Computed example of a mutant assay.
Amino acid sequence: MGRVETNGRRKRATVKDVATEAGVSRGTVSRVLNGQPYVSDEARAAIDAAIAKVGFVPNRAARSLVMQSSQAIGLIVHEPHSLFVEDPNIGSILLGANAALSDADYQLSCLIADSQRDIDRLARYLSGGLIDGVIIVSARVGDPITRAVADLGLPAAFVGHPRDIGEAAYVAIDNRAGAREITTRLAATGRSRIGMIAAALDRDSGSDRLAGFVDALGNRFDPQLVERVPFYSYSDGQAGMRALLQRSPDIDGVFASSDAVAAGALDVLRDAGRVVPDDVGVVGFDDSSWALRCDPPLSTVHQPADELGRAAARAVLAQLRGEDPQAGGRVLECPVVWRGSA
C-alpha cells in the first residue's frame, strides 16, 4: 500500500520507497522502469514485487523529460465533427489503433481537425513534444496537417494513401478495385442506367472509388449519372439521390460511395415510391453498421477498418523502435459482400 501522511491523505510512493522495499539502489529501480538492460532477473523480480506492495505508479511526465518520450500517439482525423460521430469506420479505426497501442503500453490521443483554426492549433500542439508520433485519417492531397507532420519529422502512418506523402508509411485498401468489382456485380443484375453518388473526391478514397465505377462501366459510363457530394454522410446521400432522380428519373442502379451515403439514398428512393431492389438496385462501400441497418440489407464492399487502425499503429511503433516502415505501404483486402439491396 502507498504511504499515508498524518493528515490522512495518501502520499504518492516514490522510486526511493521501491528501492528500500526491494533492497536495491534507486539507480537499479530507474533502469528497470526505463526498460534498460544490465539488471539481474532476481533484482527485477524484487522490484516488481516492491512496486506492487508500495503502490508505486510511474510519473509519466517526469519519465518523458528523461526519455524524451511521451508514450502517446496522436490519431488525427481530418473530418467535420458531425461526420466523426456519424461514421462507424472512424470509430473502428480508433479502436483498432488503441488496441495495438495499448499492447505496447502507449496512450492514444484523439485529435479532430474540423476547421482551419483546428489545423493551426494542431500544428502548434504537434510541435510541443506531447506526442511521439501520429496516425492520420482522411488526409487530402496538399493537406496542411501532412505538411506540418513532415516539417516536424514525426513518425507517422496514414490510413489511406494520399498521392503526396512520398515514402511515408501508410495502410490502405484498393478502393478502385473494390468499386470496380461491386459496380460490375450491380451491372450484371441487368441494370442499364447506373448512376453514382460520388463523395469525398478531394481525397484518394473518393477519387479512386469514382475511377473504379468508370472502369466497370466502360463505354456505358454516362457522366450525367454521377452526382458529386462533399462527404461520406447520410445527408449527402439524400441530397445526391434527389439530384439524380430529378436529372434521370429512369435510373435503375446506384453505387453510393459509402454505406452512410447509400442509406440516405435508400430513404429518398422509398419516399419517391421506388422499390429496392425491384425498381432500383443500390450498393454501397464499407460494410459498416449502416449496411445492416438498411432495409433491405446493403450490398457493399468490406473495409477492414479495425485492422487498418491496428496496422497504422504498428507502423508508427515500428518507426519509434528505429525500424523502417514496410516499403510501399500495406494494402488490405476489401471483398464484396452481396446482400438484398441489389
Rank of each mutant, 00 (worst) to 15 (best):
G206S: 07
G329I: 02
V331Q: 09
C334Q: 11
V66E: 03
A50G: 13
Q71H: 15
A272T: 06
S289I: 10
P58K: 08
L122F: 14
G129H: 07
E5M: 15
D87S: 08
T14R: 10
S138W: 04
L33A: 01
N7G: 10
N219V: 12
I182M: 03
A150F: 15
D151G: 06
P304H: 01
S40H: 03
S102L: 12
R147C: 01
T14W: 10
Q224E: 12
I131W: 02
A100E: 04
S257P: 14
L244N: 02
I112Q: 12
L320S: 04
E181P: 00
S127A: 15
R176G: 03
D105H: 09
D286Y: 00
A169G: 14
G218N: 14
A260I: 10
V254C: 07
R10G: 03
G322Y: 02
V268I: 13
S207P: 02
M196R: 01
K16H: 12
L126I: 10
R180Y: 06
D236H: 12
P230R: 03
L152Y: 07
D306P: 03
I47W: 06
R44K: 15
S64M: 14
P144E: 01
P80G: 09
S205R: 11
V280C: 09
A243Y: 01
E5S: 15
L266M: 15
M241N: 06
I73G: 00
S30W: 07
V57C: 04
E86Y: 04
L108H: 07
S30Q: 11
G74S: 04
V301I: 14
R60D: 00
P296Q: 10
L298D: 04
A198Q: 09
G142R: 13
R191T: 11
V149T: 10
R185N: 11
L186P: 05
I173T: 15
V54N: 02
I251T: 11
A169R: 11
S299Q: 01
R63Y: 03
M67S: 11
I112H: 10
S102Q: 14
V275S: 06
D278C: 11
L308D: 01
V229L: 12
R209Q: 08
E307W: 00
G240Q: 03
S102E: 14
F255S: 03
F285V: 08
L308N: 02
G178T: 08
A315D: 11
R321C: 12
A123F: 06
A342G: 14
E167H: 13
Y234K: 02
G206C: 09
N219M: 12
S70I: 05
D208K: 13
V254Y: 05
P296Y: 07
R193E: 11
A13S: 13
E79G: 01
L126R: 09
S299W: 00
R321P: 06
R293A: 12
V283M: 05
R26E: 13
S70F: 07
D118K: 10
G322W: 04
V137C: 02
V18E: 03
R274W: 09
A311E: 08
A97R: 01
M67D: 04
G23S: 03
D118P: 10
L186M: 04
G129L: 03
I76K: 00
I131R: 02
L94D: 00
A148K: 04
N219P: 15
A313M: 03
A179T: 13
P37F: 05
V134I: 02
